[in-house]
Design a binder for these strands. Sequence first.
DNA 1: TTACGTTGCTGACACGAGCAAGTTACACGT
DNA 2: ACGTGTAACTTGCTCGTGTCAGCAACGTAA
Lengths: 333, 333
Amino acid sequence: MTDPTTRRVTSADVARLAGVSRATVSYVLNDTPHQTISAATRSRVREAATSLGYAPSAAARALRTGRSDVVLCLLPDWPIGPEVGTLLGNLSTELARAGMTFVAHPGNHADRPITDLWKAITPAAVLAFTDFSAAEIAAMRAAGVALVVGLLGRGASPPRELEAPQRHVGRLQAGHLAAAGHTAIGYACPDDDRVRIFSEPRLAGARAACAGRGLAAPSVRVVPLDADAAAPAVRAWHAEGVTGVCAYNDDVALAVLAGMRRAGLRAPADLAVIGVDDIPAARLAVPALTTVTTDQAAVAAHLAATVLAAVHGRAAPAAELTGIVTVVARASA
Amino acid sequence: MTDPTTRRVTSADVARLAGVSRATVSYVLNDTPHQTISAATRSRVREAATSLGYAPSAAARALRTGRSDVVLCLLPDWPIGPEVGTLLGNLSTELARAGMTFVAHPGNHADRPITDLWKAITPAAVLAFTDFSAAEIAAMRAAGVALVVGLLGRGASPPRELEAPQRHVGRLQAGHLAAAGHTAIGYACPDDDRVRIFSEPRLAGARAACAGRGLAAPSVRVVPLDADAAAPAVRAWHAEGVTGVCAYNDDVALAVLAGMRRAGLRAPADLAVIGVDDIPAARLAVPALTTVTTDQAAVAAHLAATVLAAVHGRAAPAAELTGIVTVVARASA
DNA sequence: TTACGTTGCTGACACGAGCAAGTTACACGT
DNA sequence: ACGTGTAACTTGCTCGTGTCAGCAACGTAA
């Protein structure tokens, strides 16, 4: 497989074949401004490059320029769903348009200190869902990372990039239930502590929506992803008079529906349920699940703009990230 | 944000502070074998490095050594589910253990030619779900990529790494239905052509299982992820005497169940359904969905071993990748 | 005394690309 | 004839690291 005999094609090879100097090759292939190179030479160089299959060395380029055009996203250690998947895809497209390369690193920060990452890749920017410690940020700076963005984080100021839309998700859920006449509202959390970083802002948004309408704060219960385990929580809500439940996401919402079936309750008559994400299973559930969906393309565009602005030394763009969250009304609420 | 005043800490800075030469710093920090360095000097260098917060430059190291310790995975352009997510996570852990760094690039190969990738990153190996063209492979080789692995691909020889387990998925599905006494079997495909690369081997496996038992080939129908749209397909199967359906994945299986509800059929009495992936919604469905699950940790371990072997110039390990797929029997089949 | 091995370190050269500064050659204006 | 300008290049330094060859000092055996 590995073939040590075939040497790498360098710009020197191209220069030799085209009969010019290495500098000229660099100028031509990078379209360096303020350089006057004849059309004939340009095409000779281009031809030589393609005929040799020349590909510039990423390492050498990064070393020389000091920057690397790579944006690294540290993924959380819980399994990512399709929404995060599309977010990453959109982000990649958006950044590629600006000449940057987006890559994601599935995180197992327990397994491996992130510091090991910098001796493999030196990104121009790092995105992460969780917050960084001051020491981690210092380490990244030392390794040459220009920008560090924590997307979510408890009580950070200024609020993190994704904090506002996540809060709005919860606000919309509770608002939808309130608008339908529900006055006692529940909030269904997953039993996985690792998603706290997402569930906390959503719950905060739901709380705010209730407070804004003079309703009692949501009754929070943990709902495992299992019908039998979910049933007690559902019964407890019913007993305390809760008539509408906001779920952390669609999976949890489906668990609430399953628990209701076990408990002999009907949605939305006995308990209305609203989820988040609009996964395919949501529209296929019985009853079809009302949910809240986020325009991932818009989020990606905003994050990309933020990264690009910071990398180029401009101020971060202010954007309205609440209009991109919408309710998908179906039968369950 | 960007602070051009603070210069990067280099090994020369460390050397100066420790009062030794740069070479010594390199030997100490890399634990280079066959180098005799006194314990006193070693600790002086280590101390200087940590006190300065020294982090070696990934670019310079990659340039010098010619290799980069990075394994890049090109993701397909359809949204990835949690299974692929955990596969990536496990792969990352497994490779990290061997000192390699795993990153994933969400692919939109239409948007951007992959060749642009190599001028940002030069990976030691590239994994991809789709097949590469000969030209693409040549381009990667030219850019210094040691190993290229296509995980799936139609009619490739030798068969791709993931081909066998994917076929086995289909074989297990059909086998489970046959064992339950079903003799006329259907196969439910998604309406998204982009997942062909996965659905084809699975369908082939189901076909093989039917043929092996003397049954007719599965009746293939496209089932969109919508109850109303799925109902006609379900009715058609019922009309032609099909009593058991293998679905491409759990989402499609849920669509079949939803279509059955529309058509007034009951599972598993009228039509048994078996999915793939064991997503959370599967166990919460009515009836609870029987499905097939893959041990992603085992797959990750095998892929990691393959990559490591190739990078180090050893032969690829042969592994049995069929025992890691198992049926999760629930109510729907 | 001389030859030789070991310990502990340093000097210098690559790796491949970007870019500032320098060098021709030629045209133009006076 | 002579300075000036400019098109079209080239020379040479630099980025930060790994590593080979070498060098002094210090035994130690012949």
